[in-house]
Design a protein around this nucleic acid. Sequence first.
DNA 1: GGTAGGATGGGCT
DNA 2: GCCCATCCTACCC
Length: 192
Amino acid sequence: MPEPETLSRLFYSRPTVEVARDLLGMVLVHGETAGIIVETEAYPGGDDLASHSARGITDRTRVIFGPPGHAYVYLIYGVYRCLNIVAEPDGQPGCVLIRAIEPTSGIEIMKRRRPAAKRAESLTNGPGKLTLALGITRNHYGVDLTTGPLLVQHQPEPPRFEIETTPRIGITHCADRPLRFLIKDNPFVSRG
DNA sequence: GGTAGGATGGGCT
DNA sequence: GCCCATCCTACCC
């Protein structure tokens, strides 16, 4: 049984869409809690007006233009936090929103952090839910995911799965672009 | 089964 | 001052 391997900087230093697809099936780890990434969205920047980086470098978007493999965390609707992972080579914008995970470790801890979740499937089936369950806050803005304690690893024995592609959720600009990726028939995605 | 409305704060014009 | 890459509750089939 091989040891789980942490994804390297090179993994993230590729086109945003490729990184978004390849992150499916990887394991997101934070402390005692962990889960398999089952749903992502690509925000490639450039002419994609849905991307926060589309209007250039600001205090908030600076990390998206920096070296890949770092966390872009932001506050949404004044209430929740969304976790993104920076892609593309250093200097080019692009990040991947983690939208849902399938819990694998620390499920009791997650339940304590998510008292509103009635079923196991609702623990982490949304971007705001999974950051609560994993204990991710804006203090994680800019942290390096290749070193931890927040990191992404290969599954030792990855199962086979099909990838479904759809438009992204909850955006107004470029709402027709097929940049959302999910594991087909996985019950832990935010919506089928 | 479904959805309308509110919470709540920071980023940008 | 307006706009959100969301979630939960209440209420209605």
